[in-house]
Design a protein around this nucleic acid. Structure first.
Lengths: 159, 159
DNA sequence: GTCGCTGCAAAGTCTTTGCAGAGAG
DNA sequence: CTCTCTGCAAAGACTTTGCAGCGAC
């Protein structure tokens, strides 16, 4: 088995994503609004791990004329999460973070010093997880893994 | 390398745990109170993954005469977490769950149907995690892994 | 006795909900 | 036109904090 670690790459372009979103909305009798589009756009363009509050802040900054309310951000995130278009992460502190889920599966390594989240995928672990799950008599649905440590940058930049 | 999956076992008995706790308190000029003892006891005896509210409820049930307040539960859990005697988990929904941290490291597999949390340790994964971390230039501190699936019981007991 | 601890209730966060007007289809 | 969305503000859920009396040492 070829075990290796690689960084994940975005596999979906924005046009496709937007299209999926529109389709999803239509399929459920929901409407495509500017606010919803902007939220998706920000999730796509930003660092991918945003809190509802952070997302709202970014939107206010880039599209202040919309006066988007935080409630709409929450509502849209729930909608996207229920539709599996975004995934929520709840690491350390309180408050979830959201990331687009339309990308390849990946795990996270979080720097406990600067908070940066790096993504990775390791085939050996992926494979082993499946084995373990079966050994325990479970049918696997999802899994997530987080590693906490100090990133290269913070190791040198003595804090 | 001997890769295998095993269930974790408690490695610390209550007397030792209680002693550690007393020592910890003394070392920090804190006092050993009945409430604190009861909280530790419940964490030890219960299913190990408790919410503050659930813990409080159990205590009220077993020791109603103490009239332990929820605030004390929160305060004690923070204290225990800061001292690394318990670990908090924040899976799916909201609200953290706590477990005694004085046991061996282990990961979790969560049944998405009945919510049961099963613990396991797999040496192959443990080892691989360390490698990955180093490859990415990190110094590893901790890690956690969760697998979500349907447990054996829920597979048969059609729900 | 001293100083930390506790329960209570009030105050904070973060998130969700109700409502009336705005807007997509 | 209809029926969903939205922003606002109020309401909720979960945690934390201030305070005065209580209790460990």
């Amino acid at each position: 088995m070829n075990a290796y670690t690689k960084f994940t790459e975005r596999t979906v372009d924005y046009a496709k994503l937007l299209n999926d979103f529109k389709q999803l909305l239509k399929a459920n009798g929901l409407k495509f609004t500017i606010q919803r589009e902007v939220i998706l756009e920000m999730l796509y363009n930003s660092d991918e791990h945003l809190t509802p509050e952070g997302l709202h802040h970014l939107i206010q900054q880039k599209y202040p004329e919309l006066g988007t309310g935080i409630a709409t951000v929450y509502r849209t995130l729930s909608l996207l999460e229920d539709s599996d278009m975004v995934t929520s992460l709840s690491f350390g502190a309180q408050g979830k973070k959201y990331e687009l889920g339309a990308k390849d599966h990946h795990d996270h390594i979080i720097c406990t010093s600067c908070g940066t989240i790096t993504e990775f995928v390791d085939e050996e672990i992926e494979h082993r997880q499946k084995e373990i799950t079966e050994n325990l008599g479970f049918v696997m649905q999802e899994h997530s893994m987080q590693i906490y440590g100090i990133c290269k940058n913070c190791q040198t930049t003595k804090k």
